[in-house]
């Protein structure tokens, strides 16, 4: 019997075992998750953000639960490029799945420097440009809301990626997401990942202070899913479809049916984020559910489902 090819996917020039990723900042470097599931069934993982210099991140509390989700304000805590190269590349090399490194920085030069340093590494299959982190004072979302800057940073980093694909992660915190998506495509993005979290606040009513030490944090989880589905649909119809640029859809996916909405809306692949915090093997269950749906509905390839919104 031939292997089941229903979920095999081509994404930004890469062959993927399935169209399901683990989202940046929710899976570490995925090594912690190997004991919960077979990572080779994934399409890939996106590492937490790597910056040129190490960052210790924000003080605690860094998270707070909300109705149907949570806020986080980690502050891009990471070991920095050098330690990442020394310690994590050997670990990532052994992962049986595609690895995208999420790039962050305070300046365009910092983003570009990290991409340049990693562009020839065989352990890495691609990059995700984080221009949408709401929890840092410099960089992050300030790049992600201005189409001119998006075009500039995407082009500058793309030059440093070598042959590896560059995915640009969009923030939903804009008036017109088609404009930012278009800017990323014009800058040379090979794929779009969307959406990052929404800036939000939870207040302790007894102390009359924000719960998070950072005051605000990024809202994730099922609470944002319908907005994410809408924005994926909008960007697919208005920018990505005609440009032939695939979308990695994410935002509150807990189940296979959540993921299916993203495919129908126009995503070529999806990423599991916050759900992994509750059930570390969520991606495995989503993958099983996708296969089951394709069989039942008669789709021989999941790609046939992409953008089929009536």
């Amino acid at each position: 019997m031939e292997a089941d090819t229903t979920l095999k996917t081509e994404f930004a020039g890469l062959e993927l075992a399935s169209p399901v990723f683990l989202a940046s900042g929710t899976c570490g470097y995925a090594d912690e998750l190997a004991e919960f599931m077979d990572l080779s069934i994934l399409g890939g993982i996106t590492t937490k953000s790597i910056t040129l210099e190490s960052r210790k991140g924000n003080p605690t509390p860094r998270i707070v639960e909300t109705c149907g989700g949570m806020l986080n304000a980690i502050g891009l805590a990471n070991m920095g490029l050098e330690q990442f190269q020394n310690q994590m590349l050997p670990v990532l090399e052994k992962l049986p799945t595609r690895v995208f490194v999420n790039l962050a920085g305070k300046t365009i030069e910092e983003y570009a420097a990290v991409a340049r340093a990693l562009s020839a590494e065989t352990a890495i299959d691609g990059f995700e440009l984080n221009i949408s982190c709401p929890n840092v004072k410099k960089g992050g979302i300030t790049f992600g809301t201005d189409p001119v800057l998006i075009r500039e940073i995407t082009a500058a980093v793309k030059k440093e990626c070598g042959k590896k694909p560059l995915m640009v992660k969009l923030t939903p915190m804009v008036t017109n997401i088609t404009a930012t998506a278009t800017a990323a495509i014009e800058g040379g993005a090979d794929a779009l990942s969307m959406i990052n979290t929404f800036t939000a606040m939870v207040i302790d009513i007894h102390q009359r202070r924000p719960v998070l030490a950072n005051r605000t944090g990024g809202l994730s989880g099922p609470a944002i899913k319908p907005i994410a589905v809408y924005l994926v649909s909008k960007v697919y119809q208005e920018a990505a479809k005609d440009a032939g640029i695939p979308i990695l859809g994410m935002g509150g996916i807990m189940t296979a049916s959540d993921a299916l909405e993203f495919f129908i809306a126009g995503a070529s692949a999806v990423a599991i984020g916050t759900a992994t915090f509750i059930y570390p093997d969520t991606a495995r269950r989503v993958i099983e559910g996708l296969r089951c749906y394709c069989t039942q509905k008669g789709f021989s390839r999941i790609s046939d489902l992409v953008g089929t919104l009536q």
Partner: peptide, 25 residues
């Protein structure tokens, strides 16, 4: 004790500041 989500080192929320680690948290 810290507020935490995942319990397995993924979410990075339960930071404890320590004196001798390179990253301090």
């Amino acid at each position: 004790e810290r507020m935490m989500a995942c319990g397995i080192g993924l979410c990075q929320s339960c930071a404890v500041e320590v004196k001798n680690a390179e990253t301090r948290y």
